[in-house]
C-alpha cells in the first residue's frame, strides 16, 4: 500500500504487548495534513497506548510509524529531534512544578533548540499569548487553575512548532467550568491549520471540529468515519453500544 497522499502521520500494523497483555492488535492510522482525528473508545481499549506509540513514549512491539516523513522506529533516527515535531498534551498536564509558566515553555527551546535565554523567552511568551495566558507567564503551576495549567501545557507543545499535536484526554481532569477554555484553545489551534489527534469524550467538540472519528475497542480500530456518521448512524454493534452509553447522560 503506497503512503496515503498528504499523510503526515502514518502508522501501520501497530502491535503492543505489555508482558503477556496484548494491548494493540494491529492498528492502522493515517492522518492527513491539517486533519483533526478524534479517537474514542472504552477505557482500556488502548487509546493512550496508541498515542504514546506515535511519539515512541512506548516502544511498539511490531509495525511501522512515520511522522512528517521520518521513520520513528528506525534506530538511526534522532528521537529527540523527531519528538519536537510531535507535540503532546496529557490528561494530568505534567507541568514542571518548580518552573514558572514561562520556564515550562522555554525549557526545551533553550536546551534542545539551543536558543539564547532572551530568544527562548520571547518565543515562549508568544506561545502563551496564543493560549491567552500572557499575563500568567510568571506564575507557578500551583498558582494556576487546572484549565490554565492545561493551556500552559498546550503552549509548551506549540512553542516548538510541531507538525502534529497529540491530545490524551486533555479535559478529563478538569472541573466542568474549566473545560471550555481548553477546548477554545484547541479550536483556535485547529483553525490555524494544526494537524491534531485527539483522544477525548467531548462529543460536542468532536461534532464541531473533527474531520474524522475513530472508534477503538479491544486494541483494534472497529469503525471510523465522519462525526455525523459515527455518532448518528454507527454501523457496528459495539460502536452503537458505546455511543449509546456516552450520549445517554
Amino acid at each position: 500500500m503506497p503512503a496515503q497522499r498528504g499523510a503526515i502521520v502514518e502508522a501501520r500494523g501497530i502491535h503492543k504487548h505489555f508482558g503477556g497483555l496484548h494491548v494493540l492488535k494491529g492498528v492502522d492510522l493515517a492522518v492527513r495534513e491539517r486533519e483533526l482525528v478524534f479517537v474514542i473508545g472504552p477505557s482500556g481499549s488502548g487509546k493512550s497506548t496508541l498515542l504514546r506509540c506515535l511519539n515512541r513514549l512506548e516502544e511498539p512491539s511490531d509495525g511501522s510509524i512515520t511522522v512528517d516523513g521520518i521513520d520513528m522506529l528506525d534506530r538511526r533516527t534522532d528521537i529527540n529531534k523527531a519528538r519536537q515535531r510531535i507535540g503532546m498534551v496529557f490528561q494530568s498536564f505534567n507541568l514542571y512544578p518548580h518552573m514558572t509558566a514561562l520556564g515550562n515553555v522555554a525549557l526545551a527551546l533553550r536546551r534542545v533548540q539551543g536558543m539564547s535565554r532572551a530568544a527562548a523567552e520571547a518565543k515562549a511568551r508568544q506561545a502563551l499569548e496564543r493560549v491567552h495566558l500572557a499575563d500568567r507567564s510568571g506564575h507557578y503551576p500551583g498558582q494556576l487553575s487546572g484549565g490554565q495549567q492545561q493551556r500552559v501545557a498546550i503552549a509548551r507543545a506549540i512553542a516548538l512548532e510541531p507538525r502534529v499535536m497529540l491530545f490524551d484526554e486533555p479535559t478529563s481532569a478538569l472541573d466542568p467550568e474549566l473545560v471550555g477554555g481548553v477546548l477554545a484553545a484547541m479550536r483556535e489551534l485547529r483553525e490555524s491549520g494544526m494537524t491534531m489527534v485527539v483522544v477525548s469524550h467531548e462529543m460536542g467538540f468532536a461534532r464541531a471540529a473533527a474531520d474524522r472519528v475513530v472508534f477503538m475497542d479491544g486494541g483494534r480500530i472497529v469503525e471510523e468515519g465522519p462525526p455525523e456518521a459515527i455518532f448518528g448512524n454507527p454501523q457496528q454493534e459495539r460502536t452503537r453500544a458505546f455511543i449509546g452509553q456516552i450520549t445517554r447522560h
Binding site: 513514549l57 529527540n80 519536537q84 514542571y96 525549557l107 526545551a108 534542545v112 509548551r156
Partner: peptide, 10 residues
Amino acid sequence: QVEAARCTGL
C-alpha cells in the same frame, strides 16, 4: 514529568 520532558525532545 519525565514523559513530558522527553516529549519536548529533552
